[in-house]
Design a protein around this nucleic acid. Structure first.
Lengths: 191, 191
DNA sequence: TGTATAATTGAGTATGCACTCGGTAATAGA
DNA sequence: TCTATTACCGAGTGCATACTCAATTATACA
């Protein structure tokens, strides 16, 4: 029996933080501005997140979850590995193009040193199915069997990021970049 | 006729900044601490760099220059493209492993939004010879000719970074990762 | 409808930090 | 050696900002 917290307000805070972090950077975006953008009083922000650091860590998890959802929804579990990888590839690229702010914030968070180990772990949890898929593919000799799993998944992420960067600076070639990028990736990992 | 600035002090400031930025992040490293680490008074820092932002931009150029030096020294201009690329690859990977702090700082700077356009341009200037090499290779049909130059150079950087990350977390497999990484890259770009 | 509980507010506080400035020390050139 | 110039010093200043708190408001439940 009390007054409940509002999911809407929480989301408004996270949205405002995303916008401001993307535009100005983590530390140049004060909590006063975030609150203002979110349409709440500054004090209220601290009932939803104990500290600014908590807010940052929560935002990280949220964005990673969104990305995982985008990548894995409608995942064609029954199709062959090439189709499944291509699905993940396309979804990832499209998400990056459609969510430049989230992507920018993520890039900042990953190198900023403010994330707790718990957040990092929570952030990678939604991607276990993807990791498993790669492990199986290696065992079934679809891929070159001398490549470490981590190198493959890191390479996918690295090549996707390169592809998105390029696409953002030249939207008209989106399709070409997405195709070429995947072909490069596929050539890199198969025999 | 006056007292000259000391190159040593300037370097001491840049070194101290590198260490502190890598350990704590750009904004969590106050100028007071940087000065202390550099063995000078705080005021002196501001005779070498007008603002903290100037210091950050100067540091960015410095590190990029170091990296370019490492990559392009002893560059085998007369050898074939495979050998030249492999040279660049190995040098880049080795530099990253040997200079984790510089690498971490670079990663932060590139996404932080504090770099001026001039600094970005100055930072990429030392790499023109590398870009030219790739352009030539495409024209000579050594690579798949449907790949944009930028995708190739970005992919190299992306795969090197992935390779370094892995190596840092498992030093004993350094050689294997470096070889596998390059093989992936080569397979990705050639027909 | 009444009440206990918790959300909400925003002015206030304490801290930290980039940068300044008046005084001092060093050095290049005369 | 003298002097003009500039590096060097570090206490001080003003501003920005994360977080608090006392007063107020909303709401779940009896």
């Amino acid at each position: 029996m009390a007054r409940p917290k509002s999911e809407d307000k929480r989301n408004a805070i996270l949205d405002a933080a995303t916008r401001l972090f993307a535009e100005r950077g983590l530390t140049a975006a004060p909590t006063s501005d975030i609150s203002k953008q979110a349409g709440i009083a500054e004090g209220t922000l601290f009932t939803y997140f104990k500290t600014k650091n908590d807010l940052i860590n929560a935002l990280y998890r949220e964005i990673k979850l969104e990305l995982a959802d985008a990548m894995m929804s409608d995942f064609p579990r029954k199709k062959n590995i090439h189709t499944r990888l291509r699905h993940v590839w396309d979804r990832y690229v499209n998400w990056g193009i459609a969510n430049p702010k989230q992507r920018k914030v993520l890039a900042q968070l990953q190198v900023s040193g403010v994330l707790t180990k718990e957040s990092r772990d929570a952030g990678s949890a939604p991607f276990v199915e993807f990791q498993t898929m790669i492990r199986h593919a290696i065992e079934q000799r679809v891929f070159r069997n001398d490549l470490p799993v981590e190198l493959i998944s890191k390479s996918l992420a690295a090549l996707v990021e390169a592809t998105i960067d390029l696409t953002v600076s030249n939207r008209s070639k989106a399709k070409q970049y997405r195709d070429s990028g995947f072909q490069m990736f596929w050539a890199a990992i198969t025999k």
